[in-house]
Design a protein around this nucleic acid. Structure first.
Lengths: 204, 204
DNA sequence: CATAAAAACGGAATTGACTCAATTTTAGAA
DNA sequence: TTCTAAAATTGAGTCAATTCCGTTTTTATG
């Protein structure tokens, strides 16, 4: 069962995603009609729904690629963090934020976030939650690393702290994508300011 | 200009909201058809769109009522907070959370949140952001009050701290409404645990 | 090869939110 | 009371996502 059928399947998947990604960027998510995606991918409308449960899942596949890249980039920081708690957090969160608009526009993020709340049990909803969890885990891993290096007090609840840091960043990021004129530099500065309170509390 | 026309307008508004609230609860947001809301409110489909820009705005009106009640209840805590930082925060956030499912089901919250991210510039999107800001301000007011009472260190950045506390609670609440089996008690406990880190850092 | 079952495809039909031009109702002046 | 312009209502029509099911293609089997 890995002959022609499987190859065609993979190929159609790729064509649909590529057509959709291009159209989402050019026409926006709402402006991108399934019919247009279908014709550009050279499949029928019905076939698209054979591959993805709904329009949101197509966007979901693109979001997943982006976040996985970010997670990958973050690993470097966790393995080798700056020797200062504030800088370490800022560097990791900075990677997340700076990367975020690489493939996805703010409008695409808004849609993705909306769908993940609206349909938390859809394939994309589940995948999005998993990505959030993975980011939280990475922040926790950084904190654990800093504790191991003696930069963060050992008696701090690293689990709760990681969630707190992630939640705050995520909420700030949501507000950021909601405002088209919000700038990345300001977002980072605001998050740094908030984390300063935490850093004061947890640094050795 | 406050005769028959104004009275009819107010009456139709009320009928639409009542019909919608009932139907949202019974059939869910997606399951509630505009046509059904219209016939129950004894107006036409077109009229509904005269009163609300879109389906989401109808839900928005209901959400506003709920959040305004919560803000009102919160004022009491700010005016007269428990004489302990952890308890004070827990009491205020507890009010928010315990109230939250009074008029709105989790599904309605999910939809409301989704729409506010998806269409941040629609009337509802703006209103929702304003409500979030009002909640943040109330938390900041509590912190300022605690600082005045000498329970929180004066050198703490109350503005950033208030936002941090709100963002964390809000994100936890979003996760809570995404999972139908999540319990209020667990949500409160998790938030308390996270805030404990902050309390340790800011209490006198 | 031939053949039947399984999987995937295609595109017309359905559905439901939202629009708009025609009609009705109201406010206020004469 | 009667008339007119402005405001509001109406519901049939539009548009785009999603579904449905008959047809075609692929695979497995003898």
């Amino acid at each position: 069962m890995s002959g022609l059928r499987a190859r065609q399947k993979a190929d159609r998947h790729r064509r649909i995603i590529e057509a959709a990604a291009e159209l989402f960027r050019d026409a926006g998510y709402e402006g991108a009609k399934i019919e247009t995606i279908a014709s550009r991918a050279e499949v029928s409308v019905g076939t698209i729904y054979n591959y993805y449960q709904n329009k949101g899942d197509i966007l979901g596949a693109i979001v997943s690629m982006e976040v996985n890249e970010v997670l990958n980039a973050g690993q470097g920081v966790v393995a080798n963090p700056p020797a200062n708690v504030g800088d370490a957090l800022d560097t990791l969160l900075g990677i997340y934020i700076e990367h975020s608009l690489h493939y996805l526009s703010k409008e695409m993020w808004r849609q993705a976030m909306a769908i993940s709340t609206q349909l938390p049990d859809s394939p994309f909803g589940q995948a999005y939650s998993a990505l959030d969890r993975a980011l939280t885990e990475q922040i926790r891993a950084l904190i654990a690393r800093l504790q191991a290096l003696g930069l963060v007090r050992r008696d701090i609840d690293g689990h709760a702290l990681g969630e707190l840091v992630f939640n705050n960043m995520n909420m700030m990021f949501i507000e950021f994508v909601k405002r088209d004129d919000a700038r990345i530099a300001e977002l980072r500065a605001a998050i740094r300011r908030q984390n300063r309170i935490l850093v004061a509390a947890i640094a050795v």
